[in-house]
Amino acid sequence: MSQALISVRNLVAKYGERTILNDISVDIMPGEVTVILGGSGCGKTTLLKNILRLQEPFSGSVKFWGDEVLQMDEPSFSGILKRVGMLFQNGALLNSISVYENISIPLELHTKLPEEIRDRIIRVKLSLVRLAEAIYKYPSELSGGMKKRAALARALALDPEILFCDEPSAGLDPLTSAALDELILDLRKQLKMTIVIVTHELASIHRIADRIIFLDGGKMLFNGTLEAALKAGIPEIDTFFRVGRF
């Protein structure tokens, strides 16, 4: 069995006195699409942010490629982050610069690639997310779905080994959402990318999930394949899939 790419152990996250994540232990395996599921406010986004140190966990351990990152110094952790891409819930594009420049930032600052190569990479990444026509537009000129796709192109700029996506399909039409799922499957297959997704879209989950992690009230109720989840007989999961179908 291959070694986990990300290993989370006994993670506890709190906002003040309120416990958001309670003793979460998860392994993210290489080349898999892991979907984090659960109702609103169950701590899905908090889990992503704690893994990526965007929020400080109360206690626990997070390892990337076997290295503990919670106590890691900034330069070492930057080295980890260069191998990781993150698509935020609302895109989080830099508003003062164009879509082209947004995608260009990681390429300019983290590689020594010549401009013509960077230019090609930017055009390809935008084409992959079906946004080639918006290359010189500013984020304020884009719709919510377009912003999200541009942000995905930025997250993919450096061909990350791990891609985190916080609700990538929300706000997208079904065709674009399906195309996004295809892209995720392509990235996994061709670049052997490991993908961690927070989503509510049942159609997407059925299409792409190799493994699901189900959270409820800050606790992990299930961690395994979709088929196993559906057969596990856990009422919360059964309700989630039954209600979500309508």
């Binding site: 990479i121 390809v124 992959l128 080639a132 010189y136 392509d186 061709q190």
Partner: peptide, 21 residues
């Protein structure tokens, strides 16, 4: 084949070159 698949996915040859505003 695995290299060709990556080339097919990321090739920019057939993409139109955008005209800057």
């Amino acid at each position: 084949p695995e290299v060709q698949a990556v080339i097919d996915t990321f090739s920019s040859i057939k993409l139109p070159v955008p005209i800057p505003q």
